[in-house]
């Protein structure tokens, strides 16, 4: 098991970038690129990551990066990969780095296409559960009850489960991670790099201005999401579903999750939820754990 001390010191997200203070995306990308190394090409759709790079003619990303239209990350990755393969450069990793808007919503078709046609790449959805870049609008990943600028009285629908949709494509590797567990994220990225074919990773990325919490709490939020079972960390590989970290105990029943209120109450976006909303959220979480308990017994 790799420890924090063992992580490479190379930095591919440079200082003086345009990310908000306390941004989870740069934390996630730093760790990802430590695992993938310099021989990586990134494609980035419209998202916070397009902004974080800083302004032309400067960039804060130190590996080759293509910016592409909102719905096109996975399709552009297919092109990059095909061109690399045609030039015999199969040792280069192609990373599509998209937000939840670009993955759950507008980019879903292109993602599904690239997974189905076997593009050899890693697709990462860094999930901040909303359109943060455009000013905190609801997305297909926004949870029930959350305030956004297009759900002023709280979202009335549940989020969809994109990782399940991805798993239905029968690809070799699917993993979920949290920025609060960097060695777990690093290990998963390393593993994804070594596997041929389409790999999908989803990283929970709590957004201070979007979720309405203090910017020093970004990592704490990502940790609490896992400890309360609001976010599950797992790997799906060779038909086997394995839960990691605290998620393991929550799913197999050996660990009592922290009350989800601990996580919700730290976030301004859940400030106005009612008792009924809280019941609904808890019910939904129980159902999700139960679903995965059964699924992990099946696989």
């Amino acid at each position: 098991m790799v420890s924090i001390k063992d992580l490479p010191e190379n930095e591919y997200v440079l200082e003086g970038n345009a990310a908000c203070p306390g941004c989870p995306i740069t934390i996630a990308l730093r760790t990802m690129l430590k695992a993938l190394g310099k021989d990586t090409i990134i494609t980035v759709p419209a998202s916070c990551s397009a902004v974080i790079q800083s302004l032309y003619p400067k960039t804060s990303f130190a590996v080759p990066t293509l910016n592409i239209a909102f719905e096109a990350a996975a399709a552009s990755a297919s092109g990059i990969e095909a061109a690399l393969h045609a030039q015999g450069k199969d040792d280069i990793t192609v990373l599509a780095w998209a937000g939840d808007g670009g993955s759950y919503d507008i980019g879903l078709q292109a993602l599904s296409g690239a997974l189905e046609r076997g593009t050899n790449f890693i697709y990462v959805c860094y999930n901040n559960q909303m359109y943060s870049n455009t000013g905190v609008q609801r997305s297909g990943a926004t949870p029930y009850g959350a305030w956004t600028t297009t759900t002023w009285t709280g979202k009335k629908e549940k989020q969809k489960n994109l990782a399940e949709i991805v798993m239905a494509h029968d690809i070799p590797y699917v993993a979920t991670a949290s920025i609060a567990y960097p060695t777990d994220l690093y290990r998963k990225a390393k593993k994804a790099k070594e596997i041929k074919g389409p790999k999908y990773m989803e990283i929970i990325a709590p957004c201070p201005p979007g979720w309405r919490f203090d910017m020093s709490k970004t990592v704490e939020m990502a940790r609490l999401a896992v400890e309360t079972g609001a976010w599950l960390m797992y790997e799906f590989e060779n038909g086997k579903l394995t839960f990691n970290g605290p998620s393991k105990g929550i799913i197999d029943g050996s660990r009592e999750p922290k009350p989800v209120e601990d996580w919700l109450r730290m976030q301004g976006r859940f400030k106005n939820i009612t008792d009924d909303d809280l019941k609904e959220i808890k019910k939904e979480l129980k159902e999700r754990w139960e679903f995965y308990r059964k699924k992990s017994q099946l696989f």
């Binding site: 440079l14 200082e15 003086g16 970038n17 345009a18 203070p21 790079q53 800083s54 302004l55 032309y56 003619p57 400067k58 960039t59 804060s60 990303f61 130190a62």
Partner: peptide
């Protein structure tokens, strides 16, 4: 075309935001 080069301080010395 819009080709940008990797550099520290893409947004300047962001320590001033502190």
């Amino acid at each position: 075309t819009t080709i940008s080069y990797p550099t520290k301080a893409g947004m300047g010395k962001t320590g001033s935001w502190r």
